[in-house]
Amino acid sequence: MMTIVFSLFLLTMLVIVAVAILRTENLFTAVMLSGIFSLIMAANFFVLDAADVALTEAVIGAGISTVLFLGALALTAEYDRSPPVGTWVPLLTSSALGGVIIFATFQAPRLGDPSAIVHQHVAPWYLEKTPELIDVPNVVTAVLASFRGYDTLGEVFVVFTACIGVMALLGRVRPRRDSIKEGEFKKATDNLRHHLIPRVVGKMLVPFIVLFGLYVQFHGDFGPGGGFQAGALVAAGVILYSLVEGGVRGRELVPEWFSSVLVALGAFTYTSVGVASMLMGGRFLDYSVLAHDPVHGQHLGILVIEAGVGMTVAGVMITIFHAFSRRGIR
């Protein structure tokens, strides 16, 4: 009941904000509103008890994507110049689609209904077998990292591919030439060093963020979290440092070659676990063969692949941020 009240409340706000994002012509406004959007979404995930998703949405949606959006915005104009004509066909199409979806969901099971089919087929098996086969308290981690580990492998490669794509786009266009001398320009626009308070507080918090990232990384078996969230948190720490101290120093802290190699290295680590389990006589990604005791093998496998995921995600965020900050605008 309470869940439904809160959820409805948040979802209504979500719709309003979404419409506002669509209607605004100022891209800066859109960026800020989408920050609100992800915060609402994260709160809603939390109300629905999906803590892992909420954590991801919080870190990436509310924290890092705002920074990256602003980096992109610095490279373009601030106003959306799409022509006002021709909005009817898309509007009609999407309203029709929305109508169809709503029509279809009248038949869907109620929220939180334990007798819904979704909760009857594979979910009970996961809940029942996880303690016995994998023995981690967080079933979400068990499903993501082991039962459907092949999907997660795929997602890591999606992230890797996306990194290649972003680098292909951002590395392609030459940095804009500015009339000011390069060094002076960098000094004035690159950092917040002369703002005393952000500098002190920001630098003070960097280690805590990274520490918390490590906690999320290794605590993922027990509570919400795991490689994705941890990678994003560590990257957030590095991004904060680069914002305060300037992109140049940020790139000294984590060099660009390092972050881009980290992306590939994470994906490589994950695949290597699969190949290792093949070599040791199991199926691809069958962690049980990695140690003498199958459950212990599962623990080991999950630990290593989560580390791989964390490396890839942290690497990709830092790489993209560096790519933006290097463009001579920051």
Binding site: L192, H195, I197, P198, V201, G202, M204, L205
Partner: peptide
């Protein structure tokens, strides 16, 4: 503690 640190800092940055 973190809110106590970050919130005023954010206000400072924003006002600036």
């Amino acid at each position: 503690l973190f809110l106590f640190l970050t919130s005023p800092t954010a206000s400072y940055a924003l006002a600036n």
